[in-house]
Design a protein around this nucleic acid. Structure first.
Lengths: 153, 153
DNA sequence: GACGATTGCTGGCATATGCCATCAATTCTC
DNA sequence: GAGAATTGATGGCATATGCCAGCAATCGTC
């Protein structure tokens, strides 16, 4: 039984990516008619929850690179769903905000998202969906990166 | 207790994406010195396991869009790590193959990957890592997309 | 065995992400 | 308070991914 030794399992990262591709596809199919990608939907939800965060705050909450966030916001800003404004206190910072158009679009997408989410929970099982959420949330938590040995981040 | 009703949890898709970003970052940091991205590493491992699959077969195994696979292979082919060859039986098909250089690079990356993987399992916990693998593998499985209502795929 | 349907891949376009170099604004230090 | 160090964001470049519109090859049918 050398199975209990140091042998690592198959790649967790690759597995996660595969699942993400599949799931994004399913959510995208559902949300697309509203004019938002599933990714953008997630970003807008986070933005709505945070209010008017700075780019840095939003990036951290999204577990996203700051520049990546900037790129991702571009089409949303272009379409008038979000705005970027220089912060009065610290003019280096940009405050991101959801516009009225953004809120409207978000509401429309949310209805479709809800269906996809319920369908996912029905197909995958509520229990497992909850387990999965707990596991990925832990990985996404700020503490995890540090524990792994990526200080700061 | 209206909690047991139809209310969906937070977005599984968004959660999965966040975790994927974080984890990819950690694996990337570890693997990068070998000259491969974590994504490319995963692709080459899959390729090694399949032998000389057609693009379609590889795409399905990777849960990836065919054209996305094509794009992803381009830098690898450019660097001489993989080759694409017309299949003799069916000239529409392209057989993908790992070159010697590809194998060598893969071996180098595998050593680094192994460390990252063991570290992940140590930090996250073997049990939970295994649970996560099982959950994401199910989502990535071909049957899941169909069950969700995305026939064919 | 010609023709239409199907299959497998490529190319163009768009978003998703990340790294690094840079620039601007703020803070720290003497 | 001037200059150094730090912080917050942008721009350029590269990969990651997906959709759709071709194109070429194969298959099926009469």
């Amino acid at each position: 039984m050398s199975e209990t030794g140091e042998r690592p399992g198959r790649c967790s990262n690759a597995g996660l990516r595969r699942a993400t591709r599949r799931l994004s596809q399913l959510y995208d199919d559902a949300i697309a008619p509203s004019g938002l990608r599933a990714t953008q939907f997630g970003l807008l939800v986070q933005l709505r929850d945070l209010g008017t965060p700075t780019m840095g705050e939003l990036a951290e909450a999204m577990v996203m690179d700051l520049s990546a966030l900037g790129h991702t916001l571009k089409p949303l800003a272009r379409d008038g769903l979000v705005t970027l404004a220089v912060d009065a206190r610290d003019r280096r910072q940009r405050r991101v905000a959801l516009t009225e158009a953004g809120r409207t679009r978000l509401r429309a997408a949310a209805a479709r998202w809800r269906e996809a989410q319920l369908r996912f929970e029905a197909v995958f099982g509520r229990e497992k969906a909850a387990q999965l959420r707990a596991l990925v949330d832990e990985i996404a938590s700020p503490g995890f990166g540090e524990a792994f040995g990526r200080p700061g981040d």
